[in-house]
Amino acid sequence: MQLLTAQPARHPSPTTKATSLAHLIFERPDLKQAERFLVDFGLSVASRTDEVLYMRGTSGAPYCYRVHRGDKPRFVGLGFTVGDRVDLEKLAALPGAGSIERVEDPGGGERVFLRDPAGFAVEVLHGQTLVAELPHREPLQLNSTGELRRVNGTQRPPAKPPEVIRLGHSVLEVANYQTTSAWYTQHLGLIPSDVQVLPDGSPAVTFFRLDLGDTPADHHTLALAQSFMPLYSHSAYEVVDADAIGMGQRVLREQGWKHAWGIGRHILGSQIFDYWEDPWADKHEHYCDGDMFTADRPTGVHVVSREAMSQWGPPMPTSFTKPRLTPAAIGMLIRNLRRSPDLTLRKLVTLARLFA
């Protein structure tokens, strides 16, 4: 396949190398409604005030989801951790970066505020204190042909929200695709695991992982997709096994939440997945059994299509990637068609046809 546009690539000397995706940041007009969905989804309250809600999984991360009270619902940004205070000093020296400051959120530590080229806030933390892990059930023992692991026993997973272990990844849509991709590889050391390209060879989606050397990292911690404006696509949260995903579907349906897509298995990343919408139609994914890559795994290149999104399960609904065309969104579409070198009307028409 001939690649006509430069693909996102590893930076030879990144400013820092992020060590984890720490948290996501949202604004919501109703914190109680936000909490109700997130608890049904499988997160637990770490801390709350009248103005801020912190949610956590069962891992030692003090929180993975922060919700501020705001007049309108919106995705604000995301937080990463780095391994050394020197990394914060390097990031604080970048143009437009904030100074190093103490963190008052759960876990404490220090942080630097940045803004990526798409306009999303990026908090980079160091020195955050881990907390005691919460209990969660063990993966179910499965019988298979030739290997009986459960004899004289039964499967009875509890009928309750699945216990989210941790935040796994977030997927964002951007207009200035190449610049934003380059920013994350240059300043946080992210590695492109797989790139999905359009028929002309230009990139449409890149799945980035952390560079943890010989330590296996999630296939993607951040994915960036070509769009006409910056948008939150979804975020993903690991649960212990496929039965937890199935039980999550049962509980969320019974609680009246809106299903978005699933259950199925992705091709790139291989996760078994199920997607749900929160009260403001933002998508949240349960997943398990994702691919883990070390730093020496090369980047893969694949043709993008609806069919390339899953190995099995229901086809991806056309509504899954369909933007809400508000007057503000239409105005941004027109502006970004004029400004972004990555965005053309032909490319938008191609994307719309591929996912129609």
Rank of each mutant, 00 (worst) to 15 (best):
G108R: 05
S20L: 05
C64I: 13
H126L: 09
I267W: 15
A352L: 01
Q33C: 14
T145P: 04
I267G: 04
F75R: 00
T16Q: 07
G109T: 08
L31Y: 07
S310P: 05
V195I: 13
A61G: 05
A118R: 06
K347H: 09
D342W: 11
R253P: 00
W312N: 13
G264L: 10
V52Y: 03
P158S: 09
G256I: 13
D243E: 10
T5S: 05
G269H: 04
W183P: 08
H259F: 15
W261P: 06
R250G: 06
A61V: 06
K258F: 01
I263P: 12
H126G: 11
T344W: 04
H68A: 14
V251I: 15
R10P: 02
E123M: 11
E307P: 01
A223D: 06
L88H: 03
A328Y: 04
G83M: 08
A6P: 01
G189T: 09
R28I: 07
K90L: 14
N336G: 02
L325I: 13
L134V: 02
V45I: 15
L142T: 01
F207C: 00
R36S: 12
A308K: 10
Y287E: 04
I100V: 11
A18H: 10
H187F: 03
T299Y: 06
L354N: 10
E147G: 03
P106I: 05
E27A: 12
L212K: 12
D342E: 04
E35T: 07
L351I: 13
R324V: 15
P314M: 11
